[in-house]
Simulated scan of single mutants.
Amino acid sequence: MVNRDLVAAKLAELDDRIARIRAKCPATSALLSTDRDALDLVSFNLMLAVQSCSDIASHLIADEGWPAANHLAACFNRLRDEGVLSATTAASLGRAVGLRNVVAHGDSGINPAMVHAAATQGARDLEAFAREVAVWLAQRHSP
């Protein structure tokens, strides 16, 4: 059985990360590229937001007894297959794992334009993830 309190706490953490991303992201990628502190803060909070989504996905998969996914992006496909996420949201979060990995591992530096796009357009995907999980949980696991 899904631990609703754990999922609620992770969803609240995700909401906080999205708010931090929006608060620190300048209007353009050019501005973001000239402000290293903002770039670091936005990148870090994006990484943690995607990690929160991954943690929620892993928790749902384990607690529901669904087959384990063999990598982070596959977790979102599993949720799609089980009717938790839409295909669009699963694909978006699967791509977001790539950015998470770049930030987490410092691979080839951070691309400010990519971070800006993730912070502006990608934040909507993170919100869609939260909404879809909350709706699924409410429909499937009503108290």
Rank of each mutant, 00 (worst) to 15 (best):
A30M: 03
A118N: 08
T28R: 02
A87E: 15
L32H: 05
M47V: 06
L126H: 02
D125C: 10
L126W: 04
K24T: 03
G106A: 12
R100T: 14
D125E: 10
M1L: 12
V50K: 00
L85Q: 06
R17C: 13
V115P: 09
D107R: 13
E127R: 09
S54G: 13
E127Q: 13
L46A: 12
R4F: 08
A128F: 07
E132I: 10
A12G: 11
R124L: 14
A69H: 00
R22E: 14
G94K: 10
W66H: 03
F129K: 05
I56Q: 01
V7C: 13
F44S: 15
S58N: 09
I61V: 13
L79P: 08
R17S: 10
C75I: 05
D55S: 01
L39G: 11
V42N: 03
A30E: 14
H141I: 01
V7R: 07
D37E: 15
Q139D: 15
Q51Y: 04
L14W: 02
V7M: 11
L60M: 07
L72V: 14
P112F: 02
Q121I: 12
L14C: 03
N70W: 00
S108N: 15
W136Q: 07
L32A: 06
I110F: 01
A73R: 15
S58Y: 00
T89R: 06
S108K: 07
S33W: 02
L39A: 11
S86V: 02
N3D: 15
C53E: 02
G83W: 04
V102A: 12
R100W: 13
Q51C: 08
I110T: 07
P67T: 06
E132D: 10
D37K: 13
N111T: 01
D107V: 15
V42R: 07
V103D: 05
G94D: 01
A8K: 14
A118H: 11
R124N: 14
L11P: 05
D35Y: 02
A68D: 04
S54W: 01
A130L: 06
A19R: 08
A49Y: 06
F44D: 14
R22T: 12
A73Y: 00
F129T: 09
V133Y: 07
D16C: 03
S33L: 06
Q51K: 07
R131L: 10
P112E: 06
A30L: 09
N111M: 06
V7L: 15
A27T: 12
L48R: 13
H59Y: 01
A117V: 13
E82M: 14
L41R: 08
W66V: 02
A9C: 05
C75M: 11
L39M: 08
R80N: 08
R4A: 15
S58L: 04
A74H: 00
